[in-house]
Design a protein around this nucleic acid. Structure first.
Length: 433
DNA sequence: TCTGGGGTCCTAGGACCC
DNA sequence: TCTGGGGTCCTAGGACCC
């Protein structure tokens, strides 16, 4: 049996803890550069604000309906999340933190009334931390997600589901026919794993509800869609196919990407941005004690504009897998140099680290080969991280001579460059568009 | 004018092997 | 005219999640 604990309108709820005056009024939290709404209070949802809706499309609600928009404060949300997760963990023996506001709890071996226990945990999170949350309980992760959706809807939209499921919905207590009724009342697209594409295809095929999906023959689901959909069908029928993830599992990719506040054309600001992204990514890499093998850099124009479009990415292999900021920044800038073309209004750039592996292996090899260099690098990076941890992100950065150069220098270099420039380095990056 | 920032997994098809 | 039948690995792209 699984429980899914999910903070309601999480970012908005975090803000309300520190600004209780926001209670009861429509609030949205905006993404980076205040681009679009990434969290909405119930009142904002009632106004019709959609997830990830651009701010310029909804800003008129500020005047007409008193909508309040806040810039995101991710450091705060991360901290609130940690506290919420540690309380949620008390519900059962195992926990998988699934996102900043959700965790699955394994309930195997938990005795007593699951619903009462969940209610108690819920009110503890509310009174100790100030975050309202909902709990769904079911025999599979997909059904626990579904139950959580029922719990939230029953509370927020009276009439959508029986009111006794509000806040905590425990499917383990229900007859199969009662579960079927709930599934019947649920759009197929609200099921975990069914996105817009497959949802549309299912509806075209006459399957509009979650109950319809549960009735689909698993073999047909696999043949017509994929093993993912087949797995979802089985999970809806109560057969657990997805287990709780090991919490210690390190990430397989680490990304740092941003949209720019305004279009960027010149090379200089790009160098600064990409250096920053690469440094941040390297920090994240070290925090999970991994090394990266490849660095991917991309730049692109805005697909929403009519301007000439440009989108390129490149993978630069590191000579030796590492987590060293200067090596990763250098690789990222090398890649940027290869894909940059003047004359485009770039809207976004990013750095991704790939081919991640545990750090221990390479460190050992490096220490054998170059004991001094290996130790010095590791110490330098440790110092960097601890200073930034204490004094705030970006307090110390790794310098790069290239950052100091003016855009003019760079445009001259661009002009001088011949098509054969890619042969300048031995680790030739692999380009793709 | 203004459109997020992360992640995961699966699949089809090509290259290559014997 | 007729042109094998497997297998593996890699990559790009698609679909999904919050």
């Amino acid at each position: 049996m699984f429980a899914l604990v999910d903070g309601n309108n999480f970012y908005v709820s975090c803000e309300r803890v520190f600004r209780p005056s926001l209670e009861g009024i429509p609030v949205v939290v905006l993404s980076n550069n205040d681009g679009c709404a990434i969290a909405r209070s119930n009142e904002a949802k009632a106004l019709g604000v959609k997830m990830a809706q651009p701010w310029h499309e909804i800003r008129h609600l500020e005047e007409s309906d008193g909508l309040v928009a806040l810039s995101a404060n991710f450091a705060l949300y991360g901290d609130m999340s940690d506290r919420m997760m540690s309380l949620a963990a008390g519900l059962g023996p195992t926990q998988e933190i699934y996102s900043i506001d959700e965790s699955f709890i394994g309930l195997d071996g938990v005795r007593g009334d699951l619903k009462a226990r969940s209610m108690a945990m819920r009110s503890r999170i509310l009174s100790w931390i100030g975050i309202p949350c909902c709990v769904g309980i079911g025999p599979t992760k997909t059904l626990a997600k579904f139950a959580n959706n029922v719990a939230k809807s029953a509370e927020r939209k009276p009439g959508s589901y029986p009111v006794e499921h509000a806040q905590v919905c425990d499917l383990s207590k229900l007859e199969r026919s009662q579960v079927d009724e709930l599934l019947e009342a649920t759009d197929v697209g609200d099921i975990w794993g069914i996105g817009p594409r497959i949802g549309k295809q299912l509806r075209e095929g006459g399957i509009a509800t979650a109950a319809g999906l549960a009735r689909l023959d698993p073999a047909t689901a696999r043949a017509r869609f994929s093993v993912m959909v087949e797995r979802t069908v089985r999970e809806l029928r109560g057969v657990a196919c997805i287990s709780l993830d090991d919490p210690a599992e390190p990430k397989q990719q680490i990304a740092c990407t941003r949209s720019f506040g305004r279009p960027v054309e010149a090379y200089g600001p790009l160098v600064e941005a990409v250096s920053e992204f690469a440094s941040r990514a390297a920090e994240k890499l070290r925090s999970q004690s991994s090394h990266a093998g490849d660095v991917l850099v991309f730049i692109r124009t805005s697909p929403f504009r009519k301007d000439p479009q440009y989108s390129r990415s490149i993978i630069v292999p590191l000579r030796r897998p590492c987590s060293d900021t200067s090596a990763i920044v250098d690789a990222a800038l090398l890649g940027l140099r290869a894909i940059y073309q003047p004359g485009f209004k770039l809207a976004k750039a990013g750095v991704m680290l790939m081919e991640l592996r545990p750090a221990a292996q390479e460190q050992f090899e490096l220490c054998l080969e170059e004991p001094e260099a290996g130790r010095d690098k590791a110490r330098l990076m440790q110092a960097l991280d601890s200073v930034n941890d204490r004094w705030g992100r970006g307090s110390i950065k790794v310098g790069s001579a290239k950052i100091g150069q003016t855009p003019r220098d760079w445009s001259m270099k661009q002009q001088r460059r011949t098509p054969a420039y890619t042969t300048e380095w031995d680790d030739m990056p692999i380009a793709r568009s």
